[in-house]
Write a protein that binds this DNA or RNA. Structure first.
Lengths: 226, 226
DNA sequence: CTGGCCCTCCTACCAAGGGAGGAGGGCGTC
DNA sequence: GACGCCCTCCTCCCTTGGTAGGAGGGCCAG
């Protein structure tokens, strides 16, 4: 008995998914959530009893991938697959980067969708072949509005902010950072606030956790290089 | 009739691959190259007659992913799968970013390797599930024995404190933890204070970082067990 | 040169974190 | 029963973290 959950604010779409799953995966039950908040609440209660969360990227309380980031942080053990109308290659990559175990375009035909789900539930990873298969960057035309994730979010930080983030990541206090960098504590606060805003997190702890998923030092070195 | 090419500077390894493919994909022929230069030359001559290039990341004339980048630029239409000893998550992601259609660790068992090849040849994408599945995790590979000091410090925590620490480690605020555990915020503070004292750290961030060096969930489970 | 971004620092204010100390109740052990 | 440890919660108090807003100076691109 596997347990799935679909988080989508569109009732009709949830119904459609439910129908597909009921027909194709009889040995499973499906929970529904219409917001990220609800999904997280449910998932928390179920814990390990939830095998897979199908997450829409259009949720009202989760601006695209940012919601996935929050979710991954709160419940790192929960397998999450993206179910989205968005088919941009970068979005797919960033979703995987954030730890999604699959990415299913909503345009996927029913049989393929089922096959994808089955593969994911078996521990595989599913990505839309037709999206991934071709050139890395066909058109840089359609960007800048992306919700930003790890890499892109890091890229938005200024050099100084990265320096501060490194210290944060070592558990330093604002005061300590100020001493180390020889700037005023108020300045450190300014930087920290900017970091939190740009990373889209709400506390320094969360920033630290996010930073922990990357090799900050390496990133900084690479950056200096170019 | 599908045509494959393996580019690896290690003759023995090329032989091994050749054997696997000969046995598992009888309807195919395999070309061999011992350098990126040779591989590109051959591929250029064959053009569309080459269905897949298996590229090692240890080639002498191609420093890791840099070689893949050059290759992709010169022959964007050629499907390339990475075949590498490297199993780092970041490397895998970057390879895919660069347009690789698959990533096969050299440690992959023979059957899985064949299955991966078949999937790739069918237009699918293959990534090593065991690598991708656990994203931000550091390294379960190394240790069965946590640094003694760490373990002893953890052992000093009561069950409730561990529960709180887990939430801390997810970036939760005291208020949030209180809600989750359904206790007063002051109680949470009491627990946090105790945690800091017993772990010998000075702030919640440091506690989180310390906790991050352990698999808390596993530790808790193990503890419940005895 | 103007506008934009960055870094610096400030004030002021509010929220969150953390310490000290005390208190009651539960549970297990000597 | 007494002791100890844990969990719960409280008050009082201080420190730290974080936001808002403003301000000056440097640097660079249009």
């Amino acid at each position: 008995m596997t347990t799935l959950m679909v988080a989508d604010d569109h009732p009709l779409f949830r119904e459609a998914i439910a129908a597909v799953i009921a027909a194709g995966l009889p040995e499973s039950r499906l929970l529904e959530a219409d917001s990220l908040a609800q999904a997280m609440q449910l998932a928390e209660r179920l814990e390990a009893d939830l095998d897979l969360l199908l997450l829409d990227l259009g949720l009202p309380d989760a601006a695209g991938l940012e919601g996935l980031a929050r979710l991954r942080q709160a419940l790192p053990g929960l397998p999450v697959a993206i179910l989205s109308a968005e088919q941009d290659r970068r979005t797919v990559l960033e979703a995987i980067e954030l730890g999604a175990v699959g990415y299913i375009p909503k345009s996927t035909p029913r049989e393929d969708l089922l096959a994808a789900l089955e593969r994911i539930l078996e521990g595989d990873l599913y990505l839309p072949p037709q999206v991934m298969r071709r050139p890395p960057s066909p058109a840089p035309a359609t960007d800048r509005s992306l919700p930003a994730s790890l890499e892109t979010r890091l890229a938005r930080l200024t050099d100084k902010q990265l320096e501060v983030l490194e210290r944060l990541h070592r558990g330093a206090s604002n005061k300590g950072i100020a001493r180390e960098l020889d700037i005023a504590e108020t300045t450190v606060k300014t930087h920290v606030s900017a970091i939190l805003r740009r990373l889209g997190v709400k506390s320094r702890v969360q920033a630290v956790l996010l930073a922990g998923e990357l090799d900050l030092a390496a990133y900084r070195a690479e950056r200096r290089g170019r």
